[in-house]
Design a protein around this nucleic acid. Structure first.
Lengths: 103, 103
DNA sequence: TTGACATATCTATAAATATCGATATAATAA
DNA sequence: TTATTATATCGATATTTATAGATATGTCAA
């Protein structure tokens, strides 16, 4: 876990919000029609819907999500045309423990 | 508590280290001779000693410490010529709770 | 009061980050 | 195959951050 990368990823208001929004995808994002039941990536939201909610250019959001994934905060899966992103709870938990014990 | 300010303050390696060093001032910094017992600011380390440990210019460290104080992570007290900085455990605890519950 | 020292503030520059629009790539639909 | 849609990458520019050195301010000691 690269703690510094995580702090950098979260030192931006929109990225911090995105991580929090992803705690409740159903309440915070338009629900996609694209997914059939069996290819579900549970809790995942496609780039376009995150972009609509965040209100920044598509290229910006794509870069943000990539950065957050590289920090370990998110994980993604491409299904057809769409890339779905969701929280990586394991890393987030690890980070929370680091804060509690080492910070 | 301004969470975003805290994340920004900690999104820099040296600032993150300073906060961690201040958990154990005696082990991490030269002990100052300047303080008499009664005017002690327990756990506080003067700017110059933090600067020596961090290895950046004095003006940079002064700015870092000010930024960390504005974020609430540190508190300071001027005693004579020296300004002592120490951790603000209350805010750090609050931040840890935020991470655990809201992140 | 002057000199020395600790810290804070100011100025300048280089590097990193934020952001957009345009284009490239990948997948699907017609 | 071609057009359309979703996402990723590229190129450009503006803003922010990192950093140093110079100077100002505050405090103490001679």
């Amino acid at each position: 876990m690269d703690t510094l990368l995580i702090f950098k990823a979260l030192s931006n208001e929109k990225r911090l919000l995105i991580l929090q929004w992803l705690k409740n995808p159903k309440e915070n994002f338009i629900q996609p029609q694209h997914l059939t039941q069996h290819e579900h990536f549970d809790g995942g939201v496609c780039v376009g819907n995150i972009q609509k909610k965040a209100g920044l250019a598509q290229s910006v959001i794509s870069g943000y999500l990539d950065m957050m994934q590289k920090a370990g905060l998110l994980e993604s899966k491409r299904i057809g045309k769409w890339t779905y992103y969701r929280r990586n709870e394991k890393v987030i938990q690890e980070f929370a423990n680091f804060i509690k014990k080492e910070l």
